[in-house]
Nucleic acid binder design. Sequence first.
DNA 1: CAGTGGTCTAGACCACATC
DNA 2: ATGTGGTCTAGACCACTGG
Lengths: 251, 251
Amino acid sequence: MDADRPHAAAPATPRYAPLYQQVREMLVARLAAGEWKPGEALPSELDLAARFNVAPGTLRKAIDALAAQNLVVRRQGKGTYVATHTEEHASSFRFLRIRSDTGATEYPGSRLVDVRRGRASADAARLLALKPGEAVLQLRRVLEFDGAPVVCDDITLPAALFKGLTRTRYEAYDGSMYGFFETEFGVRMLKAHERIKAVAADATAARLLRVAPGAPLLAVERVTTTFGDRPVELRRGLYATAHHHYSNDLG
Amino acid sequence: MDADRPHAAAPATPRYAPLYQQVREMLVARLAAGEWKPGEALPSELDLAARFNVAPGTLRKAIDALAAQNLVVRRQGKGTYVATHTEEHASSFRFLRIRSDTGATEYPGSRLVDVRRGRASADAARLLALKPGEAVLQLRRVLEFDGAPVVCDDITLPAALFKGLTRTRYEAYDGSMYGFFETEFGVRMLKAHERIKAVAADATAARLLRVAPGAPLLAVERVTTTFGDRPVELRRGLYATAHHHYSNDLG
DNA sequence: CAGTGGTCTAGACCACATC
DNA sequence: ATGTGGTCTAGACCACTGG
């Protein structure tokens, strides 16, 4: 690109980077920069192909890759849209793996119990790529299925990215927490890694989840990342699994 | 295919099936029938395109889909190979989500504790699509990381598919359990669904995993399927997560 | 060197959504 | 009717592998 030389670009670290990957990276950069906002349509494929001076097929392959990463969503006959957490009233199960044993597909209610400012522990700093002691926000929220508490999450956020986050403001927002982060703070949660253990409920968890102290709970530690694999959320959750389970597909 | 009319095939249930999907399904059928065995190379793309009377690009897209499902593996310059569980000495972590907390990537040892014949419980029958009381094999095996037991699996298999499975025969086999199933019984594990809960260790589990009775454990119920989403294995595992965790990527 | 998968191009046509 | 993404085709050329 740049010029009209198809795939003669100078190799960076790998010996060679396919044109469609280069185009993909340019598109990601523009998405990250907010050239097209979540929920908006990208220009048409032919338009983009012309801009980047590549064949439609090449441009298409680049967008295929973005769609596979869930960065954009294609809608036949309409266009290609920037992925958003604000429309996923069904597909918000993308980051929510807890399910009712009965298979009921009800969407849980979220209750924000507490918001406070604090400083990153050594642990949190490491996982969030912050300096120990940097300012963070600590949220605690409870997920309720059919009125019964099932999940208790302790969420740690870099304060610098979420200036002005308050409990009131969250409660004024209608939608998922990641929708809230996206809309109000421009932070887009793209990928997450979870580490799961089994633990015994301590007094606090027992009270919040209404289980006996010492009852076995799932402990889920999630690090969520945005563009460039930059960690922007640390979430430690305790799941009561008497009537619910963590669902996972391998394949 | 069939004729030389590109995509005029009669719609079945969906209004319309793309040619490359039809080709994909024909390839899956041949894979399931064993026309090419695990580890073997498929014919070249040009060859297959000619056989199916489609353009190389269309055949390629069909194989792309198979590769995305991990049914085949492409190797540039060499060919496209049927996926196998017998070569994945590294990538066998595809179906093994337990990891050491220290990040050590050691491969665990597997010890088959017990093999017995039995009849399917109502539960097992439902999950394996058998009739209650049908003959099954019950295996119990322990996974050890660095000599310490971490996972105890109770595995239920339809006896009809695994005739002649004995402990001796497993111990004579050098490789993973799914490699054993594939090589010795022609059963290919393709996908799995897991449901995870936290439970307290009972006396048996406590002894096998060397934890205190009542200690919290991960309980992982896995249903593994082969071609056509046919369930062929039910696996109930207990994971000791003091120094290990279940690792999962979302995104 | 020949053979394989991988990339790129170019254009025709289909299906879907919207006006 | 128009514009969008989706499919299909056809052929040239590149990169990797192995004899």
